[in-house]
């Protein structure tokens, strides 16, 4: 058991070590989940940035190179591209054939939305890490107290 006393009104809260460890474990899982979500969101935003960059480049390019696979084992030269229309992902399973300006607008909207979610996840992550640190500090304190008692007794 851990006894924590609040100096002002001398209230004592008794928390079992098992409860604290369980709480720390649950928090750890939640933090892992948040970190995974954070990484996925960042990846999504980077993908959108790449597409926005590609749309910009499309207007200036005379000739484009298309990579055949992820490792770039073969690259094709592409000419005669219709620069007036691109397919943009609207969401779910739908793509619309639109002009590059509208595609840019759709992608920027998506990016803004994802950035807002990313910011919320970041705040939640900071809060959870702080809570985890507090529990870890209490557990360390308890361990030190226990060792001190054992040293006295020994």
């Amino acid at each position: 058991m851990i006894f924590m006393s609040n100096e002002e009104n001398q209230q004592k809260v008794v928390v079992s070590l098992e409860d604290l460890l369980a709480q720390a474990d649950a928090l750890k899982k939640y933090i892992d989940y948040l970190q995974k979500t954070y990484a996925e969101l960042q990846d999504n935003i980077m993908s959108i940035d790449s597409s926005l960059q590609a749309l910009k480049e499309l207007q200036n390019s005379q000739e484009l190179l298309m990579v055949g696979d992820k490792r770039g084992n073969v690259i094709f030269k592409v000419q005669g591209i219709d620069k007036a229309k691109v397919l943009v992902h609207l969401g779910l399973e739908y793509y619309a054939e639109v002009d590059p300006d509208f595609a840019t607008k759709v992608l920027n909207d998506k990016k803004t939305e994802l950035s807002s979610v990313l910011s919320n996840v970041e705040k939640e992550l900071a809060k959870s890490l702080e809570a985890y640190k507090e529990i870890a500090d209490i557990l360390n304190q308890a361990q030190q107290q226990l060792q001190a008692q054992q040293n006295k007794g020994g």
């Binding site: 609207l90 969401g91 399973e93 739908y94 619309a96 639109v98």
Partner: peptide, 27 residues
Amino acid sequence: REVNKILQELSQLPAGTTVYKIVGNLL
């Protein structure tokens, strides 16, 4: 939420705009 977002985007497109739908590996 996603459906509402797509409907909002579609409302800004001119009538008769070509839209593609993913069905398996096909558009």
